[in-house]
Design a protein around this nucleic acid. Structure first.
Lengths: 172, 172
DNA sequence: CAATCCGGTTGCATTTTGCAATCAGTTGCA
DNA sequence: TGCAACTGATTGCAAAATGCAACCGGATTG
């Protein structure tokens, strides 16, 4: 899979970047799931990506400028992948995609609670989330006031609450 | 190409709908280009879709509930495709996709002016545009005040202005 | 020192895509 | 009336992408 440049239309060019079934899934897991390693991405995703496809897409996303790769100092064989600013600014697209999917497609409750939160938070919450990602992936200084709960933590807490509530509903 | 339902995640499900290189291009041409017929979509797009792929995607988009098809009374062989509400609400996604592509990808000026306008107009302009699409495709009554220039006309005028200016720059 | 983990690679069958030619019915025009 | 152009597709075939499972050598852990 390579970039074609069929036309200079922005929608077309965006589609040539992630008009496939896996690139955005990988970015989703990195952005929302905090995954940084090959194995985390391989075993962590619900959708079950194959290792050759994962390797190919990581390479492609690096060539396109959406990811960078570095050695993990804790383990000589580990590589750590980072989002670039180009990838971090996909957050609004992810939010819109999630919002649309939540309305029109057969989503499950526990997996869509995060999309709901992100939609309700709107652009200010997206900005805060992108700021956090810049700290994690680019080493940028924080612009949010200290002791603010991180967006990722909020999303995670909401997810776990739904899972717990559903489990309780089954056992009672 | 069918729908897999690999997981109930809204981003994944959205990706299963248009995680390919053509579905969104077709919807783009219908939404922004006003294309309604097979031949218009076949010959009109800059990217040059093949007729078998177009036929397949139109069928798929109908099955998914994004399009409907009706006889064109003016010609016994003509079919007219319409957007459903599900497809019309893709406008914000298109706008975000265009805005992102404009920043990060090698877009051409004349093809990105529309994305720029749509981005600057923000959600109110998107709403007006969706309202117009509901009139055209669903026969809905207008909610915008009369004599307001249509969004499509504004986008088209901006595009033609850029083209004219570039042509002038060459010939002078 | 053996099991596990690390980021991948290889080979192969299946599916999807792209391309060009073609089709049968419909319409406009001379 | 006759014919060219147009309608929404379909067919056959080669090339590319995908999915799957097995495997690799080196690093780490218990």
């Amino acid at each position: 899979m390579s970039i074609d440049r069929r036309s200079g239309c922005p929608i077309n060019l965006s589609l040539e970047v992630f008009g496939d079934r896996w690139s955005l899934i990988i970015l989703r897991d990195m952005i929302f799931g905090g995954k940084r390693h090959f194995r985390e991405l391989l075993n962590g995703s619900l959708e079950g990506i194959a290792s050759n496809i994962l390797a190919d897409r990581l390479k492609r996303l690096m060539e396109l400028g959406l990811l960078t790769k570095a050695d993990d100092p804790s383990h000589k064989q580990k590589a750590i992948y980072s989002l670039t600013e180009m990838a971090i600014t996909l957050v609004p697209i992810m939010a819109q995609l999630g919002a649309w999917g939540r309305v029109w497609l057969p989503v499950t409750e526990e997996l869509s609670i995060r999309a709901e939160l992100l939609e309700k938070g709107g652009p200010p919450l997206w900005e805060q989330f992108m700021d956090e990602l810049r700290q994690e992936h680019l080493g940028a200084p924080s612009k949010t006031p200290p002791n603010t709960p991180t967006v990722r933590r909020q999303l995670r807490a909401a997810y776990e609450e739904v899972v717990a509530r559903k489990a309780e509903a089954v056992t009672e």
